[in-house]
Every structure is written in C-alpha cells, then in structure tokens.
C-alpha cells in the first residue's frame, strides 16, 4: 500500500445529533474542528486543546468525551451528540434548568461542556449518587463560579444514598 504523495482522507460515516453524515475527511482531523469549522456547531468550545478543561465535551455513544482529543477515524460508525442535539431532550433540560435555578453560571463558556457531561452521567446512571456525579465532573473546569452553584445542582440531581 503506497501512501506517499497523497493527502490522506477517508470516508467517514457517523451519526451527528441524530443525522447520518457521510464525509471525506483527513482521518486525523480533530472531531472538534469537524464540529465547529465544518458543521458550524459552536456549542462545544475550545478552552485548552489538550483535553484538560472539558469545554469541548460531547457525547460519543452516550459517554462524555473531549472532542479536541478525538480523531475523525475514531468516530467511524458511532453516534456523536453535541449540546445542540441535547437541547430538546428532557434529560438535558432537567440539567439545564437546574443550572439556571442554582445560578451555576456566569460567563457560561464552560456550560455546554458541563451540561453535556452531567447529562451523560445521569443518562448512564439515573440513580447516580452525589459522589458519582462529582467524579464525573472533575474534568470540567470553571473559572467564574468557584463551583458553588454546580455543587447545588449535583445535590439537586443526585439520588440520595439509602438510609442505613
């Protein structure tokens, strides 16, 4: 197989926010760039480019993952959901409304990532405890709030531990 002198590209098929997409794309293109630059979905944000801040969090087959670390080929045949695709879903709305109620946002830049992570955690584990939800959120940085609002949201959405 000769790979010299050809710009690499692949036939990528994946589901994005419920829609089946087919595209020719460089296999190592970042998913974040496919979403923001190619598809015009600016919900996921770029905060660090190295997967340390969580601002680019999307759902990949239901799991919250940083899009800046995903390479195009890694989403072949999978389902990607961004905050744009979550908006209409009750599970997300429950999270978003809780964020509003507890004043858990200020500049809001971290929020698409936070809301996406929290929704994924609750969808995968509807009876998640406070501790489990907290652990799911360690990778989502916020600089404005000091996390107080988010602490209240987690208390609000978690399932209390059963009494001994």
């Amino acid at each position: 197989m000769s790979t010299e002198n050809t710009t690499p590209n692949m036939q990528l098929n994946f589901t994005l926010n419920g829609q089946l997409l087919n595209m020719r794309v460089g296999p190592a293109r970042r998913l974040l760039d496919i979403l923001r630059l190619d598809q015009g979905l600016t919900g996921p944000k770029e905060g660090c480019s190295i997967g340390r801040c969580g601002a680019c969090t999307i759902q990949l087959d239901g799991a919250a993952v940083p899009a800046c670390l995903l390479l195009a080929y890694q989403v072949q045949g999978k389902e990607v959901i961004t905050v744009e695709g979550l908006r209409s879903k009750p599970a997300f709305q429950r999270v978003a409304d809780s964020l509003i109620e507890h004043g858990a946002l200020q500049c809001g830049y971290c929020i698409p990532g936070i809301a996406t992570s929290l929704t994924a955690a609750l969808t995968q584990r509807p009876n998640a405890s406070e501790g489990e939800l907290e652990q799911a959120m360690h990778g989502n940085l916020c600089r404005c709030t000091g996390y107080s609002g988010l602490q209240q949201v987690i208390k609000d959405l978690a399932t209390p531990a059963p009494n001994n």
Partner: peptide, 22 residues
C-alpha cells in the same frame, strides 16, 4: 431571579466572540 442571559447560556445558545465562524 435568574440573570437575563441564563437560558441562552444553560442551553448552549450563547454565541461568544470566538464562535463567530459564519
């Protein structure tokens, strides 16, 4: 009460200066 931009921000509708790719 909730700040006036709460809903846009919570629902990921808020456009930021670095989102202006269109």
């Amino acid at each position: 009460n909730a700040r006036p931009d709460s809903t846009e921000k919570a629902y990921g509708l808020q456009q930021y200066p670095t989102d202006e790719l269109h």
